[in-house]
Amino acid sequence: MTEEQLHCIGCGAAIQSEDQAQPGYTPQAAIKKGLESGQLYCQRCFRLRHYNEVTDVNITDKDFLRLLDNIGNTDSLIVNVVDIFDFNGSLIPGLQRFVGDNPIILVGNKEDLLPKSLKRSKLQDWMRQEANKQGLYPEAVILTSAKKGFAIERLLRLIDKYRQGRDVQVVGVTNVGKSTLINRIIKQRIGIQNLITTSRFPGTTLDRIEIPFGDGKNMIDTPGIIHKGQMAHYLTGKALKLATPQKEIKPKVYQLNGEQTLFLGALARFDFISGPKGVTVYVDNNLMIHRTKMANADNFYTKHAGELLQPPNQEDMAAFPPLKRFEFTVSEKTDIVFAGLGWITVKPGAKVAAWAPENVDVVVRRAMI
């Protein structure tokens, strides 16, 4: 086997030892050790797995999309993984043109982060409706937790039911837990743990990774599609840790008066303009929430973003996009959703404004709880 035929088992990149800035770079000595051990990882994956250190590589959004372009020409079952804490932010724009006529299973991952009071059946119905609006008509919708192992066997049964001897293409935008989910499946089926490189950082999988089913067909982990509407693309590792929920979210209730503001770190802003008192905030339990008067909010943000208001910290604020304002008046109990961050539930008759980084989605939906 030549060096050009070798691939990293963590991210799928072709192994090479010439250019450190390109995907798959691995020193010759490490290639030899990897072949001897049967665990060949590129240098980027090795550092990420052992030191949580991310090395940038020269791979563009177009490169990711090119790698997915041929899915519609295959005869495959498509498993589309989305983050149910960031459903709208993790839908793949234009997925239907990638999928073609192939059947789809829609997997809502990170179920363990949602409050127990949220009705799962209601969420699944909503997911199906939102998918239909995007032109996607999944054969099945299922909620899972790759991290906790919840409903993995149920997902495998669905895959067996609908793949009918075909390959399975696992697709999703970055940071939805796609590779973690595949690692869980591999562990439960063949007992190998943490084969594929995973992290909070977008773009960990760089090329397709094939896992044999044993019948001549494969489960294929495709690269995560870059979605600029995701909050994760504007945050460094430390900020991601503070903004991305790791445990079940504990709701926080605020009895806001009119013309009051909540800052969600420096990542987002919520203005309660008028309406019935009482809003409920669903974000990471460790994310700092600061309350102030709306009249002073602009100056407060300018003065304190990156210091009192974190994340991001002051150093990272220089590259953080300005906040864009969206105003809503609601007629029913409604969730104001900040893509990748969480949501705030308001009562009927509330007039509010939500601020998020440019390109990050703010959407409204009927309250889930």
Rank of each mutant, 00 (worst) to 15 (best):
Q39D: 11
Q39C: 11
L40M: 09
Y41H: 12
Y41R: 13
Y41A: 09
C42K: 10
Q43E: 15
C45G: 00
F46A: 05
R47S: 05
L48P: 01
L48D: 00
R49G: 09
H50V: 06
H50D: 02
V54F: 08
T55K: 12
I59T: 13
D61T: 10
D61F: 13
F64C: 06
F64W: 09
R66W: 11
L67T: 12
N73T: 14
N73S: 10
T74Y: 13
L77N: 13
N80M: 12
V81Q: 04
V81E: 05
V82G: 09
V82H: 14
D83F: 07
D86F: 12
F87N: 06
G89S: 03
G89W: 07
I92T: 11
I92R: 13
P93V: 00
F98C: 11
G100Y: 11
D101Q: 15
D101L: 14
N102D: 06
I104T: 14
I104N: 07
I105S: 10
L106G: 08
V107T: 01
V107Y: 05
K110M: 01
E111W: 10
D112S: 08
L114S: 02
K116F: 00
K116C: 01
R120L: 04
K122Y: 02
L123E: 02
L123T: 04
D125V: 10
W126K: 12
R128H: 11
E130K: 13
A131S: 10
G135A: 00
L136C: 11
Y137C: 01
Y137I: 04
Y137Q: 06
P138N: 01
A140L: 05
A140E: 15
A140K: 15
I142D: 00
T144L: 02
S145G: 03
S145P: 05
K147T: 01
K147A: 04
K148T: 02
K148C: 00
G149Y: 06
A151G: 02
I152E: 02
E153V: 11
R154H: 05
L155S: 05
K161P: 11
R163Y: 10
R163D: 12
Q164R: 15
G165Q: 09
R166D: 09
D167P: 14
D167F: 14
D167E: 15
Q169P: 08
V170S: 07
T174N: 05
T180W: 06
L181R: 03
L181I: 00
I182M: 06
I182S: 07
